[in-house]
């Protein structure tokens, strides 16, 4: 029983991180209807930038975080301007494939710059684990959870109340109406990419802090696809809830199924879940239903 509780708590904490990255996906998808499959590489890049600032310049963590966020904003702008904007109006398949290409490029570049060696992140959070009484959460995980929740709250508040957020929601619901109300759709697209990139680099830093960084950590970005499919591609609340569900599910699989087949099930469980959801409820828990019938 105690193990079960422990696993669920760990799952919740991991789920928070998934939720944050999923939020990045959803922010971009909602505004621009492009699914950014290079999200995992954005994450990796963020983690490496932060790592480099921390270890090379020996900057304090808050400074490194700010610098990384600035880098994320730049990345978002550049990617949107150079790669996605020429494809506006092209079939959706082109936009997806271009993000795949982008992911491969980024991965290769990260490999070139930082070499494929696995690195441990310098300690940025106090190492004391959080004891809940019935379960113990390792320090990295609960600080990560904390950051994820803060990040999500900030994005939610911006989205809900700020002028920019309202503009983004307007574009998401009807581009032409938004355009005729004087909202610059291009600007919103660029902003969406920046926000998405920011959410993913925060996720990258936190995950890097928990399990170390390497070129291959971007694979988590693909796992998060299960989260957004479960939550519904265009639902922010769904992304967060989906994150928790997938996080717990993944850790439960690790507990119960891994010993049966000798490991590995934990990482593939989200993908099984994904196919299952697509078969029974493709628009997810809260996604917009699009009904097409002949």
């Amino acid at each position: 029983m105690e193990i079960l509780l422990q696993v669920i708590v760990t799952g919740l904490a991991t789920g928070g991180l998934y939720g944050l990255i999923a939020l990045g996906f959803v922010l971009i998808y909602k505004a621009t209807s492009v699914l950014n499959l290079a999200m995992g590489e954005f994450m990796t890049l963020g983690a490496f930038v932060c790592f480099t600032v921390l270890t090379q310049i020996k900057a304090p963590f808050y400074l490194a975080l700010i610098l990384t966020l600035v880098a994320a904003i730049l990345l978002g702008f550049i990617v949107e301007r150079l790669i996605l904007r020429p494809l506006i109006g092209e079939p959706i398949i082109s936009a997806i494939m271009v993000t795949i290409g982008l992911g491969v490029i980024l991965k290769g570049l990260i490999y070139m710059v930082w070499t494929p060696t696995f690195r441990n992140f310098p300690e940025i959070f106090p190492p004391k684990p959080l004891n809940l009484g019935f379960a113990v959460v390792p320090s990295g995980l609960w600080w990560g959870f904390f950051f994820a929740i803060i990040g999500m709250l900030i994005f939610l508040l911006i989205f809900k109340f700020s002028r920019t957020g309202v503009a983004m929601r307007a574009v998401a619901s009807d581009q032409q109406a938004a355009l005729s109300m004087g909202i610059s759709v291009r600007w919103v697209f660029a902003l969406a990419w920046c926000f998405g990139a920011m959410a993913s680099v925060i996720g990258g830093i936190v995950i890097g802090n928990i399990s170390g960084i390497s070129v291959y950590m971007g694979d988590i970005g693909l796992k998060v696809l299960a989260v957004i499919i479960l939550g519904g591609l265009d639902s922010i609340g769904g992304a967060i809830l989906g994150g928790f569900i997938i996080g717990i599910l993944e850790n439960l699989t690790g507990l119960y199924i891994d010993p049966l087949i000798g490991g590995g099930a934990k990482n593939v469980a989200p993908f099984f879940m994904l196919v299952f959801i697509l078969m029974i409820r493709p628009y997810g828990l809260f996604g917009k239903k699009i009904i097409e019938r002949v």
Binding site: I83, L87, S94, L102, V104, I105, G108, L109, M112
Partner: peptide
């Protein structure tokens, strides 16, 4: 440097050709 270069070039081909 040529090990990751392969991937970068595949990615570049995909992106450039699509655009």
């Amino acid at each position: 440097i040529f090990v990751p270069m392969k991937e970068v070039i595949f990615g570049l081909f995909i992106v450039l050709f699509l655009i």
